[in-house]
């Protein structure tokens, strides 16, 4: 596999605020990538720089081996669907106008697929875009992004406002179409556990930095929570990387980054309770650990 996107030491400052702080990662060609992080972690800024909507303060991005900025070769391979995308109300007022424009611009546009998706999401071609609900507007974005079949398709929080049924539909259609037409799909999301099975790879941003960049399968079953009497828990975690430690009276709970099968059975035989943790919990713990470290370094 080859790298389709490479990001190195990317920073973006808004005045004194560092929205992105020396971000580096690479994305392989053909895969579904999740960009995860809290509000304000820098997800949107990062995606805007990748799609050359915004200009980075420092660092470098290459897509398909070239700089994307004002590069019509690179840009014609990209579709970017934003959260709360604004559509041109009076110039292209109807759903069919917005789709018509997409059909003109995207080389790999599949009208049959677009029509099928419209029916799935119950979007009426003659509806005015202005009159769509938040969820329907999000669905329109999803239709455009999927039917564009752009080699690099980027969704920024594609489903804000979409109900669980519509989100499930999005996942199903995305997977089925991805299987037939593999391409590089990146989407930012809060809903880690819901999307986890789809994602091949997860990149977690926190305060403008990458705190986790790993294959989803490698993350599963690695991290664990160890519970028991505080003294025993403390003994167990001595040589482990602790993400988060909680204490209630003499009872303790530790989230650890990585634990082997033999360690786990040893702790269980010592009377501790060891459970694997979900991806969402792992990311929350990682994020907390990161902000704790930051607070310490600030002192």
């Amino acid at each position: 596999m080859s790298k389709i996107i490479e990001v190195s030491n990317l920073s973006k400052n808004f005045g004194s605020l560092k929205a992105l702080d020396k971000v580096s990662f690479a994305i392989e060609q053909d895969g579904i990538y999740g960009l995860v992080g809290r509000n304000g972690a820098g997800k949107t800024t990062l995606l805007e720089i990748l799609t050359s909507q915004t200009i980075a303060s420092e660092g470098e991005v290459t897509i398909l081996g070239q700089h994307p900025f004002e590069n019509s070769y690179v840009m014609s391979n990209i579709a970017f669907i934003k959260e709360a995308q604004r559509y041109p109300d009076n110039i292209l007022p109807k759903v069919k106008d917005v789709l018509g424009a997409a059909a003109l611009i995207f080389e790999n546009w599949d009208q049959g697929f677009a029509d099928q998706l419209l029916a799935d999401f119950r979007l009426d071609l003659k509806r005015k875009v202005r009159k769509l609900s938040k969820g329907q507007t999000a669905a329109l974005g999803v239709v455009i992004g999927l039917a564009s079949r752009a080699p690099v398709t980027i969704f920024d929080e594609p489903y804000s406002g979409m109900d669980p049924v519509a989100r499930q539909l999005f996942y199903d259609r995305l997977l089925a179409d991805y299987a037939e037409n593999p391409r590089t799909i990146i989407f930012s999301t809060h809903l880690v556990d819901e999307a986890a099975d789809l994602l091949e790879h997860i990149i977690v941003l926190e305060s403008g930095r990458v705190i986790l960049d790993a294959a989803t399968e490698d993350l599963r079953g690695q991290a664990a929570v160890i519970e028991g009497p505080m003294a025993k828990v403390m003994g167990a975690i001595e040589k482990l990387e602790v993400l988060e430690l909680q204490e209630v009276g003499s009872f303790g709970r530790a989230f650890v980054n990585q634990i082997s099968q033999s360690q786990s059975s040893k702790f269980v035989s010592e009377g501790l309770n060891v459970q694997p943790i979900s991806l969402q919990q792992l990311i929350i713990s990682k994020t907390k650990q990161n902000s704790n470290l930051e607070m310490e370094s600030a002192k």
Binding site: G31, Y171, L175, A179, P182, D197, L198, T216
Partner: peptide, 18 residues
């Protein structure tokens, strides 16, 4: 097929292949 498995279990095709 891999694609059928991926779609049925709602998982990434790369995972099904693995």
């Amino acid at each position: 097929s891999i694609n059928e498995l991926a779609a049925f279990y709602r998982i990434n095709p790369a995972t099904a292949l693995k």
